[in-house]
Nucleic acid binder design. Structure first.
Lengths: 211, 211
DNA sequence: AATCAATTTTAATTAAATCTAAATAAACAT
DNA sequence: ATGTTTATTTAGATTTAATTAAAATTGATT
């Protein structure tokens, strides 16, 4: 079995040292280079084939947010495993959107790091717990459980149809009601939700996941 | 060190057998029970303390989408590792939103399964590659770069304001235009985008990221 | 039996949207 | 340089949608 060639790109010597020892314990991996700056890394990639680049993210002056893109251009076959010192939302979303294979924060323990490297060698994705928590928060923002919607079932029907682009007359036709009924429902809905316009109603429906 | 007590809840005997053998290889884990239906599982949870429940998801007649909630009520300290046979978007989003610890699909290989179990014992989260791909798609939808919008700058102004809940008269005031001008823009926008109602316009603005 | 919330309707009114038509200015091509 | 297109702006007459206020009906709850 072919070993995976790995390049470590991290601005901190201590971090590189730590990674070096972890990699030494993984039989399927072989460290083929180290770099402490973007310039060094890009140069190394021109001379050495890498299956995985373990990349420090956004060390000012060393690695920037563009490094990911540059690596991809020079060495499209290399998978990227990001280890980020920052674990704020903004950084995490940036990294995730850049489409890297795996993503750890520097707070991860050895087990997660090893798992991440091994998953990446198998061309799988691996995100550490911390990253997953942020990702979930973005995908499934906490609902304000206390009062989901004060709307009645019928009113929810109306909201749905309005948000789907139907006007009152069409809704009346579909639901076999008078258009007046529809308008009354709308009025009550607007009052309950303290909304002023149809647009706000549509936005409510969309953000509330009613459509 | 205390071993993690694990209950396997899966409708398929073969799956349980497979899991049993994987668990036997993990020193930090101890299988303390099996269940092939929700009823059996809930009963088992009343008599046996479980650190982790490995749960098959949505086997009709055996486990339902409510099972997660019921497990949580009976045994709040148990972590949940879902292994789902379905890996369609809808199922995945449902499961993720239910806030489980870890999530595999039945297509995962042994390594991912072992990693997931070990991560879960450490109270970390683990989602398999397949699940991550869907999650990313939801969080960072691909932009349709090809034809961003055929709208003129002024028209985009109008769309924005409409989507923000302003009616034509207010927009006219804000932009120091005649309301007629606003209506004309709206009409042209509707024509360009082939939309029929205000609601559809708002949805366009929201999905296009104009607001 | 009384009350409340949800659902439904009417009639009269008001506000918003549409249609038709057209003027102006800037950008573009022949 | 002139004609053409596109974006922007406006007006008047018309149509349509939305709002308001008042009330009847149903079903559930107390």
């Amino acid at each position: 079995m072919q070993k995976s060639a790995i390049i470590i790109a991290d601005a901190h010597y201590l971090t590189r040292l730590g990674l070096r020892h972890i990699l030494a314990e993984i039989p399927s991996c072989e460290l083929v280079g180290e770099a402490s700056s973007e310039h060094q890394l890009l140069h190394k990639l021109h001379t050495t084939k890498a299956d995985i680049v373990v990349l420090d993210y956004n060390q000012p002056g060393k690695f920037t947010t563009d490094t990911v893109e540059k690596v991809r251009q020079i060495s499209p076959q290399s998978r990227l495993l990001i280890i980020s010192g920052d674990d704020d939302k903004k950084t995490i979303y940036q990294v995730l959107e850049s489409g890297v294979n795996s993503f750890l924060s520097k707070h991860c323990g050895e087990k997660e790091i090893v798992d991440a490297i091994e998953a990446t060698t198998r061309n799988e994705k691996f995100y550490c717990t911390n990253v997953l928590n942020h990702l979930l928060e973005k995908s499934f923002p906490k609902e304000t459980d206390c009062a989901p919607t004060p709307l009645s079932p019928r009113e929810i029907d109306i909201v749905r149809l309005v948000a789907n682009g139907l006007i009152a007359k069409e809704i009346a036709g579909k639901l076999k009601l008078s258009t007046h009924t529809v308008y009354t429902h709308r009025k009550n809905i607007m009052k309950k939700l303290k909304l002023g316009t149809t647009s706000e109603l549509v936005r409510f429906a969309l953000t509330e996941g009613l459509v």
